[in-house]
Amino acid sequence: MVDFYLENVIKEFGNLRVLDDISMKFQEGKITCILGPSGCGKSTLLNMISGIDKDYQGNVAGFDEKEMSFVFQEDRLIPWLKTKDNIEIVLKKKYKIEERKELIYKYTSMMGIDKYLNFYPKELSGGMKQRVSLARALSYGGEIIIMDEPFKALDVKNKNKLIRDFKTIQNEEKKTVIFVTHDIDECLELGDEIYILTDKPTKIKRKVNSNISKKEILEIVEKD
């Protein structure tokens, strides 16, 4: 069932058209990847979906009153808070203290960082900090998880391990995930469906399923 969608969305900054007639559907409980070159407007799309940007033409539907969790390229951890406190800070208005403790333990264990609860961000590697960021998003319990190039700053080994661990959790929890990247391998590893975007003015080149090959995606990307 399709619960969330964009329909004929156009976004302009002055005389510059960034998004040109974009229509997308997001399946509940699935990972939808948005693949496009840097600067094509992927983050702008996320701002519309999250309600930050309302200045556009077209229709963005189904997202109102849905709780969202966010994972960004930067870990966005507060440097003077320990791991457990960086997670708990987003939970305080939503959960009671015992619930918070249970959620923190559950997701730090699932992400393999339960031994680092009392570490400050400066004491963690880049991969570990991004694991904290993911644990924070998952523990918040949003119905939709927005992921904006969350693995971009990681080396290949850390990225691949983190992707595998996230997939394990996703297979269990079936979150609705909107994942933005310019990395084809990430799309093939994670995505149930993939939207391939052009450069500005950005259109949808093709919507494909994850059983497509990397070679086929490259051919679509490179085709005029």
Rank of each mutant, 00 (worst) to 15 (best):
K92C: 00
L77D: 01
I87S: 01
T83Q: 01
T83M: 03
K94F: 09
P79N: 15
S69M: 03
K96T: 15
D75S: 14
Y105T: 06
I97D: 09
D75R: 05
I104Q: 03
V90I: 12
I89T: 12
K84N: 03
I78F: 15
L77H: 04
R76Y: 14
L103D: 08
K94W: 07
L103T: 05
Y95W: 10
I89L: 07
I78P: 00
V90R: 05
F72R: 14
E88G: 12
K92N: 00
P79A: 15
I97H: 07
R100Q: 13
K82N: 04
E102M: 12
E74P: 08
L81G: 00
D75F: 15
D85V: 14
K96C: 11
I104D: 03
I78G: 02
K96W: 15
E98S: 14
F70M: 10
K96G: 12
L81E: 00
P79K: 15
I104N: 03
K93D: 02
R76W: 10
E102L: 13
Y105C: 02
Y105S: 05
D75E: 12
D85I: 11
Q73Y: 11
E99M: 01
I89M: 09
I87T: 03
E88H: 01
L77I: 12
Q73D: 12
I78H: 07
K82D: 03
E88V: 02
E98C: 07
E102A: 12
K84S: 01
E88W: 00
L77T: 06
I87G: 02
L91C: 09
K82L: 03
R100A: 09
Y105H: 06
I104P: 04
K94S: 01
Y105F: 10
E74Y: 11
D75I: 14
E102C: 03
E74W: 06
F70W: 09
W80H: 06
L103K: 15
I87K: 01
S69V: 05
K101H: 02
V71F: 01
E98T: 13
K93I: 01
I87R: 00
E88P: 09
Q73S: 12
K92E: 04
E74C: 06
F72H: 14
K92Y: 10
V90Y: 10
E99T: 02
K84L: 07
Y105I: 11
L91Y: 12
L91T: 08
Y95D: 04
K92I: 08
I78R: 04
I87H: 01
R76C: 11
E98W: 14
K84V: 11
I97N: 08
K101F: 02
I89D: 01
L91E: 07
I104T: 05
L81V: 08
